[in-house]
Design a protein around this nucleic acid. Structure first.
Lengths: 101, 101
DNA sequence: TCATTAATTCTATATTATTGGAATTATAGA
DNA sequence: TCTATAATTCCAATAATATAGAATTAATGA
């Protein structure tokens, strides 16, 4: 994990529609959801949704693969672990963590 | 922790200069740093730095208090714990966490 | 093969964020 | 009190992001 990747993931998550998509996908679990389903559930036009999914994918927040006719999106669980591990290590390992710096 | 606060914190952190400030403050520890020190160390003009510090403050990423002539900024440790706790709980509690959703 | 479905890319517009010099405010400390 | 310092706010220019309809691409599956 480095600054560039951290920034990419944080930027991907720091937008309302994308945070909504992320939360939806967390709830969907390992099965993931099709782009059209996400678009419908959040009442977001397909092209807008596609734009945000691309941002999330480029930021490594989600992965994508084909499933029949649809593209299936799901949370990139490992990448999320990396991000949180990085931030936790940086300042929140324990209550007195900051004393170490 | 709620969506609004999460978005505020993520947005505050998701910008290069602000992430730099955050990292600097993590290293500075509980003592914190004066705005002028941050400005100098990162080679960022005072007004630009002030703008970003305000964003970080409004997003609850840092706190601020006067110390002599300077204003002392430090990481809002508790808020960071809340953010990470929220995100961790959401999807990264354990390897199979997503199965619960 | 070919029609249908799913999703993306294109494009123009709108909105929001960032930058930094100049002016202003606030306050500590002599 | 008054001056020097620290920091912020103001402002205008610029840059970056987000929106969504229309056109296009991709590919399944009948």
């Amino acid at each position: 994990m480095n600054k560039h990747r951290t920034l990419a993931m944080l930027s991907a998550l720091a937008q309302e529609t994308r945070l909504d998509i992320f939360r939806l996908l967390v709830r969907a679990g390992p099965r993931g959801l099709a782009a059209s389903t996400i678009s419908q559930r959040l009442h977001v036009p397909a092209s807008t949704c596609s734009f945000h999914l691309k941002e999330l994918k480029q930021g490594s927040v989600v992965t994508c693969c084909r499933r029949g006719r649809s593209l299936c999106y799901r949370v990139d669980f490992q990448a999320m672990q990396s991000l949180l591990g990085y931030l936790t290590e940086a300042c929140c390992t324990e209550v007195t963590a900051m004393d170490r710096y």
